[in-house]
Simulated scan of single mutants.
Amino acid sequence: MLKTVKSNFFDLAIDRKMYSNKPNLAFRLNYIFEGVNFVNKTVLDVGGGAGLLTFYAAVKGAKKVVCLEPEFDGSNSGMIEKFKEFKSALATSFPIEHLPLTLQDYVGQIKDESYDIVLLHNSINHLDEEACISFLEKESSYNTYKEIFTAVYSKMSKGGKLIVADCSRDNFLNAIGMKCYFNPTIEWHKHQRPETWVSLLKEIGFRKPVIKWSTPNKLGKPGRVLMGNSFMSYLTQSHFKFTMEK
């Protein structure tokens, strides 16, 4: 049954144009969730859009997944409806929930919940864009993010895993005044380096940072071996992933 649902997940994701093709999607998911066991875990997917990663966590055995996507706060429109349609087509019994809330609002209102896995995929820089832009220049901006993740830390179970994936601040093509072919819509000044985030999170108490650099999915494992480093990423898509633990 689980195998069938997993197969349906990939078929539906491609049919609904949530990803380009199944091999690329599988490669990407394996990269993001490398070494992660979802069975009987609670998961918080921050800025999860229409729920692609949320549904994957459920398919892989998570006992509860909450997807946050604050449509009213500048995100892509129609995400809630797309989420409902995907859930109806895949499995309505999945223990998943889609809420139109920011991370700040959500952690401020929950009381007894705790999460084993917290995922921020292309969302950490947008939790408070103004604060992120001036993160290194203004103490108040730094403290804004510190308060956010202190609250997140308090809502995670001991040994819980934080997964963050996003674009860094530095990109070669952007530096020479050209549009980045790999990420043409990125506003680079609104982003920060992974090392910057790791330093902040260490102050809060997160530990065991592991930083990796993304490579184009179509290049597969050979591309990961040859280009999975900070220099090659700087020349191409400047996208990273890091994990830390509570």
Rank of each mutant, 00 (worst) to 15 (best):
F94M: 15
Y56D: 07
M18C: 03
S214I: 12
S7C: 12
S168M: 13
A151Y: 11
L162S: 13
E195Y: 14
Q104D: 13
K111W: 07
F38P: 00
G159D: 03
F72Q: 09
S88H: 11
G223S: 08
L99M: 12
M232F: 08
L44Q: 00
D170A: 10
K63S: 02
S77Q: 15
V198H: 13
I176W: 01
G49Q: 00
G78Y: 02
H191K: 12
T215E: 06
K82H: 13
E130P: 02
K87T: 15
L201V: 00
F10C: 09
S77W: 12
D170M: 06
E34H: 11
V59H: 01
W197T: 03
Y234R: 13
H98I: 04
A50D: 11
F135A: 07
Y31I: 01
G108I: 13
L12G: 00
P222I: 04
L68P: 09
E195V: 03
P184F: 05
G47K: 00
L103N: 09
V118A: 05
E139Y: 09
G61P: 11
G78Q: 14
L173K: 06
H121K: 07
I32R: 08
G35A: 14
Y31K: 05
E85F: 00
E130I: 08
D15A: 10
N174F: 04
L2P: 03
I148E: 07
F86E: 00
K212T: 11
K218G: 08
Y145E: 04
S238M: 04
L2C: 11
K82L: 08
E245K: 02
G220Q: 03
I211N: 02
